[in-house]
Design a protein around this nucleic acid. Structure first.
Lengths: 229, 229
DNA sequence: GTCTATAAGGAGATAGAC
DNA sequence: GTCTATCTCCTTATAGAC
């Protein structure tokens, strides 16, 4: 019915496709289901895209490039590195809890891409992006709490991504919030243990609640179960 | 052609289904592809199974129950806990490298089960089993190296499973052996850091190569990059 | 540019001969 | 019990009217 620039149509179809995948999985994302979700007619699909495969490739690309947060660093409750990391991980986990279907869709799209010879290398690029985002978070966390990472940041980023992936997968499987939070506390300890007290001073301690002013409390933090668990 | 007890037929179809899934993914596991893999005719499928869905459910069950190793503990190179854990993780990783398609199939089956309302709770059972196996490994590693876990073993098992999952997923995505091994070294340190030197003596130090006899060397082992990386 | 109608093929499942 | 042949439905994709 309505006229629509082809770019707009493509964009809407991509969004619709992701929505369908989130709801029913990749296998449910038929051209018919997608156009219905987008409120279009079937023929419009093939006017905007050469094939379903082209849409999937485009979607997979878009999804990689718009991936934003691995974990958002928010200055710690007590200024500690562990606490800061744990807070960040808990925020990430909140996002997962808030929209589990999105997360499931991401995993499925990754696996779909790994199966498609045409999308060779996509999964690798996705994980590279995850790591880049993690690098930023780790860098900021260390700076804010006055620490220095004892290993190449890129390596630590890979460790962090592995932990978040594992935590997410397990939670998607069993939905056990408490368990996820305990593993998050563990993850925070594990990552924090890879830092040394560094020369970088925390930028500012203002504006945070419960400022215990206990700066540079670090490395050996076994047993710090944080506010979680 | 050949007569065959129905139980045998079911068993062969299940094995064929898993092979097809490993090769082409769940979406490629059509009844036709499965019977071809098994060297049967299509009608035999529906003689042995009510429906494709029934086979998938059965497969998913079988796969859970026959899952054997999360990580196989082999006495450490130097008797340390970190080393023991790292060795075990490296062995696990070797298995993954040796048959990546199997691992991919496992992830896909889990996700498939999570999408099927009929298989509600399967994924949770699978992860419970993973944890039980991890508990055994952790228990043995601690006993052998004379340590005591400072947290409930079930929690640590969840941490370990998250790490192995994350390591596996990342490697399946990018195939970077070095990175995987570095993350494994990190994982070993992280888990080992959750132990305290305990009263349990190592059972025996005989039969292991490079027995440095340095018993009870523990907890603070950052930087022990082991034989990996 | 957008629609209806349909082609062409693959899917799960079954009928019925042997 | 095992086969061939077929039903029915759903998929991607296109033809052709408007």
């Amino acid at each position: 019915m309505t006229h629509m620039p082809v770019a707009e149509r493509r964009s809407r179809l991509l969004a619709a496709a992701f929505a369908v995948i989130a709801r029913t999985g990749v296998s449910g994302a038929t051209t018919r289901a997608i156009v219905e979700e987008a409120g279009m007619k079937l023929a419009s699909f093939h006017y905007a895209f050469e094939s379903r495969e082209e849409l999937m490739a485009e979607l997979v690309n878009e999804v990689v490039e718009t991936q934003e947060v691995v974990l958002e660093v928010a200055t710690a409750a007590d200024g500690s590195l562990v606490g800061t990391l744990e807070q960040g991980l808990l925020r990430y986990f909140d996002q997962v809890r808030q929209d589990p279907r999105r997360e499931r869709a991401m995993f499925e799209l990754t696996q779909y891409a790994m199966r498609s010879p045409a999308m060779e290398g996509f999964a690798a690029r996705q994980y590279e992006r995850y790591r880049r985002l993690a690098v930023q978070s780790l860098d900021e966390a260390a700076t804010r709490t006055g620490h220095r990472w004892a290993r190449p940041l890129d390596e630590l980023a890979a460790d962090l991504v592995a932990l978040t992936d594992g935590i997410t997968l397990a939670w998607l499987a069993d939905g056990d919030d408490g368990r996820a939070r305990r593993t998050i506390a563990f993850a925070a300890r594990a990552i924090a243990a890879e830092a040394s007290p560094g020369p970088e001073r925390p930028a500012t301690t203002a504006g945070t609640t419960r400022t215990t002013t206990r700066t540079i409390r670090t490395t050996r933090t076994i047993g710090t179960r944080g506010g979680a668990a």
